[in-house]
Amino acid sequence: MSVVEQTVKPYSREWLLSDRPQSRRQAKLGRAYVVWRRFGENRLALLGLVIILALLFVAAFAGVLAPHDPLQGDLRNARLLPPGAEGYLLGTDDQGRDILSRLLYGSRLTLLVVVLVAVIAAPVGLIVGTVSGYAGGWIDAVLMRITDIFLAFPKLVLALALVAALGPGIENAILAIAVTSWPPYARIARAETMTFRQSEFISAVQLMGASPFRIVMRHVMPLCLSSLIVRVTLDMAGIILTAAGLGFLGLGAQPPLPEWGAMIASGRRFILDQWWVAAMPGIAILIVSLGFNLLGDGLRDALDPKEAGQ
């Protein structure tokens, strides 16, 4: 096609970093590559990525990786064995169940919670925020008042009250956390929308006769996505902690499900003598939420160099 195509091998470093991309795809890949390089320079962020990838892997292959059944224990021979006991790397709980196997299966529940909360809360926040920011006027005023009302509630307390009304269970816990999670996303999406509502390209689309619905869906929302993704990633840790807190209070996943927070609660009775029953699930929660925090931090720095290191 052109001289550049001949001298620069496609998908090579130079091709990706080229100032004059020849195609949309090259431009997109190039941008992604730059972000990736900035991300890669941050070792802690890479560590976070590794943790999350490991979580995905474990959740996918829990059935293969787990040495024991997570729900049925060996009550006769294997109650409250310490870590390192034969066949039980992390010990067993009061029902003779292998803690490691329960943790591995529990990763599925953790992942389920964060994914479902993100899938419910992020689009709600995105829609409320973009509509509010694009429409302005009284629509904006009303939507933002509602957002502020939900922001005024402490997350955990509102989730507690909701679960109390809905009844305990993992589905209700997810719903309750989602209800408390969307307001910040709406705020962010609105702020982003406001910055380019008056910009030329939006006017151009308006002049071409696009409906407000189309403008918001096709032109405004995609631009809000990157900051929203960063915020959702940073929130994942909080979601995990809230879910674990609900589980600990007996309001989340119900026994015998191997939910990490509930596992801590059931280990609480033995904490003085069999510390591992409560300690191990806590370590799992700590590692995973640390992973999300590191990843979110790294993403933010990579996508927004202005804020880097702040």
């Binding site: 840790a237 909080g238 902690l241 674990a244 807190g245 600990f248 927070g261 801590i264 609480r268 904490i271 510390w275 409560a278 300690a279 699930p281 806590g282 929660i285 700590l286 939420s289 640390l290 999300f292 925090n293 590191l294 931090d297």
Partner: peptide
């Protein structure tokens, strides 16, 4: 970061 990531009830128990 650890403070942001640790479950408070667990740390309290320990």
């Amino acid at each position: 970061l650890v403070g942001y990531s640790v479950p408070i009830f667990w740390l309290g128990l320990l």
